[in-house]
Design a protein around this nucleic acid. Structure first.
Lengths: 146, 146
DNA sequence: CTAAAATAGTCAGTCTCTCTGACTCTTAGA
DNA sequence: TCTAAGAGTCAGAGAGACTGACTATTTTAG
């Protein structure tokens, strides 16, 4: 059972390996008050601002959980809540400059890890892996039905 | 940022999609007292019995966390703790028949999801995906250095 | 046009998982 | 032998996730 893992466990092992290292890079760069859960949420906020419900759906947590994480990000100065001009019930969550500064750090860490993975798998297999995962997202990302 | 996700997020989305469904299948089959965290641990117990430290390392949690989960699995009748004949400090954790009965349910659920994924990607791309992930495990699974 | 239903978000409470730190018991090494 | 390392447990704390109940606004149906 240990040697022949299912594809789900294989996905998790790779995800975890990358996630831990990207997160470590961000922490080491001085952003040590952002947690993994907060960072995942941050990644799903787009430039025009994103609603709490959308973030909750994208990250597959309840609105309450998303609200809890946004509270913390707001307290840390990473996001701002503003009104949504099209709907007075809703509020738009936007990244601040502080949050945007994290982006290049994450990108650099990801590039480094991807380079290691490419060195191990070879460029062709790495491209196939990325392509397969991107296509799979079409049927596995609930948020893509937005 | 939402449309062009990094490979880490892509891995997570696919993992989550599979994990949720396998877990739902197990729950629906009546094993509704097993949690996701417990199931992940269960998957890493091999036929000869596995030490707590090994489980902790394989699932990337502390020994305390692994112990907490094993306590619950033991209370639910899914695992048993026995002595390790080769080392009196250690104990071997073994799956009971009840835990083994979960296995075919998980396998069936995984097969169903993989069939859907194969239908979407095509057999060639699916095989490449599985192959890529398995090879990646060589450098991303800390437990493989056992 | 108004009343009912749906949607966006918050507040309160709880539970699970995870961690750190301190401890015991056993084994292995100098 | 006796000291260091390893296996596991106990205790305490915090993060993140949930359900349920609530307010305010928008949409839909009659």
């Amino acid at each position: 059972m240990t040697d022949q893992l299912d594809i789900g466990s294989l996905l998790f092992i790779a995800y975890r390996a990358m996630g831990d290292r990207v997160f470590a890079a961000i922490t080491e760069a001085g952003y040590d008050d952002v947690t993994m859960a907060q960072f995942k949420l941050l990644q799903r906020i787009n430039a025009d601002g994103t609603r709490l419900s959308e973030l909750a759906e994208a990250t597959q947590v309840t609105k309450q959980t998303a609200g809890y994480l946004v509270d913390q990000l707001e307290a840390g100065g990473y996001v701002e809540r503003g009104p949504d001009p099209t709907d007075a019930r809703a509020r738009l969550i936007r990244q601040t400059g502080k949050a945007q500064a994290i982006h290049p750090i994450a990108v650099a860490a990801i590039a480094e890890i991807e380079a290691e993975w490419t060195a191990h798998l070879g460029k062709r297999r790495m491209d196939q892996l990325r392509d397969g995962l991107a296509r799979l997202r079409e049927i596995t990302d609930p948020y893509l039905g937005r």
